[in-house]
Amino acid sequence: MIEARDLCKTYRVEGQAFTVVEGINLVVRKGETVSIVGHSGSGKTTLLSLLGGVTKPDFGQVMLEGIDLWSLGDDRLSELRNRKLGFIYQFSSLIPTLTALDNICLPTAFGTAVDNPADRAIALLEKIGLADKAGFYPCQLSGGQQRRVAIARAFINSPEVILADEPTGDLDEETEREIIDLFREINAESGTTFLIVTHNKEIASLADRRFAMKNGALKEVPF
């Protein structure tokens, strides 16, 4: 489904090179759930961005369903991001000028994957327990609620791969539970592939495979 081949990413700061991702090879099969742990600054977010085609690797390839992302033109790549990939960010990522509902629908403005975005968005709002907050603006929602809306947004176009960066970072245990259940439900229903960066032991243990990121390299951690 999604595959990294010899992926490398180096940042240059004031002439000094920091290699954050160093020759990572990874194959994730369709419907698989993979968790990634690692110290702060170990390059997890960078890896997810590389896999999601929002930053270009210095070396190596990202293959999505056999297609090399960076061999595509920008339009095709954008279409792929729109239809096949869903991002859940580590930080709050809602557009402040849009209501929860519009935020969830936003990705549909750039593609035609969904016929009736609003209906689907409302269904998603129900799933995350925020059906009564559809018309609320991000600033009128709690941090955890905002995060849940961002999660719902990632699902709006029924992507095939979800790239989640600490998706339950600021959620209480119960909500966290609900989100995990949502992930499992969607995974079971539509065979969605999940790559989840997390410090949460429970999520990590639920994954089919677990990886640890260290010094730019990815190592599989046996159960």
Partner: peptide, 15 residues
């Protein structure tokens, strides 16, 4: 940041 996120969720350059 917002524009970057729009791009990440599939907005093309022309959008």
């Amino acid at each position: 940041r917002e524009l970057g996120m729009l791009r990440a969720m599939g907005a093309k350059r022309r959008h």
